[in-house]
């Protein structure tokens, strides 16, 4: 197991990967799933057309360390903060990380609204892992 992906206590990180709503572009999500697997992460892959409720449900049952959302339909400014709020309302302390096609000028707004990190195309495995590790509460 690579040190990069182990949680602070030596256990593998468990990360949920999903796409919210009507957005059928899941190639990126699959690439990230594989990237994380190869870095020693246990990926709980939910895939396409999820709702905030299904993701929260999975996060509770799977005791996930982080939620990764992939967004390619320009809905990120609406959907990502909604997900962040749903996590808070459920009383969970789990970071929401967004990847995909996010215009640079939207990144600050997403971070302001509670998204833990925003990753674009070309982010390396190390960058993705670092973003997850930095945002998971220890």
């Amino acid at each position: 197991m690579t040190d990069a992906a182990a949680a602070t206590d030596g256990e593998p990180l468990r990360v949920i990967l999903a796409k919210l709503g009507l957005d059928g572009h899941d190639r990126g999500l699959k690439v990230v799933a594989r990237m994380l697997r190869d870095a020693g992460v246990e990926v709980i892959y939910l895939g396409l057309r999820q709702t905030a409720a299904t993701i929260i449900n999975a996060a509770e049952q799977e005791d996930a360390d982080a939620i990764g959302l992939s967004m390619h339909n320009a809905g990120h400014l609406t959907l990502a903060p909604r997900m962040v709020n749903a996590v808070k309302e459920a009383g969970l302390d789990i970071p929401v990380i967004v990847g995909g096609i996010i215009p640079d000028e939207d990144i600050t707004e997403l971070l302001d609204k509670g998204v833990a990190a925003v990753l674009g195309p070309g982010a390396s495995t190390d960058e993705v892992i670092a973003a997850i590790r930095d945002s998971v509460p220890s």
């Binding site: 246990e42 990926v43 892959y45 299904t54």
Partner: peptide, 23 residues
Amino acid sequence: PSSPITGGAILGDRIRMDEVIDR
């Protein structure tokens, strides 16, 4: 399965279940 090389895993069983189970 966990990867025997990295210890990572893609746990993909929920995608076959979430639509039919009563949560």
